[in-house]
Simulated assay, not measured.
Amino acid sequence: MRSDTAFAVFVVGALLMFFSFVFDAPLIFYVIGGLMTVGAVAAGTTRRRAGPPPDVTLRPGGGDRPWRKPRDQ
């Protein structure tokens, strides 16, 4: 599941829980909204990257950055 889809499911679940609270809906709507939000968070955290790791990272470091190394030509 893409992160945009997971975010949309999270928002719909949160809105369902909010409106269930405001309009004093039955407990089943709270359960459905809670399961949607938890499922969306779980889908977002278990998503894996595809492809090789990036060449440049944003971690702090000195000489390990590729643009600071002299080129051998």
Rank of each mutant, 00 (worst) to 15 (best):
I28Q: 02
T5M: 05
T46F: 12
F18I: 15
G62R: 11
L58G: 10
A25G: 03
P66Y: 10
V38W: 12
Q73F: 14
A40L: 04
D72Q: 15
F23G: 02
P60L: 13
M17Q: 14
A43N: 12
V12L: 09
A40T: 02
V56Y: 08
V38Q: 07
F10W: 08
V41W: 02
G63K: 07
R49Y: 08
P66I: 14
F19M: 09
A43F: 03
A42W: 12
T46D: 04
R2E: 13
P26C: 04
Y30A: 03
P66V: 07
A42C: 10
L15S: 14
I32N: 02
M36Y: 00
F21P: 00
A8N: 15
I28T: 06
V22A: 14
P53T: 12
M17T: 03
M17E: 05
G33I: 00
G34F: 01
L16R: 01
G51H: 06
F21H: 07
M1F: 08
V56T: 11
G33R: 00
A42E: 03
F29G: 01
F7I: 10
F23L: 09
A43S: 09
W67T: 04
A8H: 07
P70L: 09
P54S: 15
V12G: 01
I32K: 01
V56S: 03
A40P: 02
T37F: 01
L35G: 10
G51W: 04
V11G: 14
R48N: 03
A50V: 13
P66F: 10
F29N: 02
L15A: 15
F18P: 00
S3D: 07
V31P: 00
K69N: 13
L58W: 14
R48I: 07
I32L: 12
D72L: 14
R49S: 15
D72P: 12
F23E: 03
P26Y: 02
G13Q: 00
T5Y: 08
F21I: 05
W67F: 14
P26Q: 08
G44P: 01
M1S: 14
D72C: 12
A25Q: 04
G61S: 11
A8K: 08
V12I: 15
V56H: 13
A25I: 03
K69M: 10
I28W: 06
R49M: 05
D24Y: 07
P54R: 12
F10R: 01
W67G: 12
D72E: 14
G63D: 11
T57F: 06
F21W: 10
F23P: 00
S3V: 15
A25D: 01
P60R: 09
R59D: 15
G63S: 07
P52A: 15
P53I: 06
T45L: 08
T46I: 15
L16W: 00
G63P: 07
G33N: 02
P60H: 05
W67R: 10
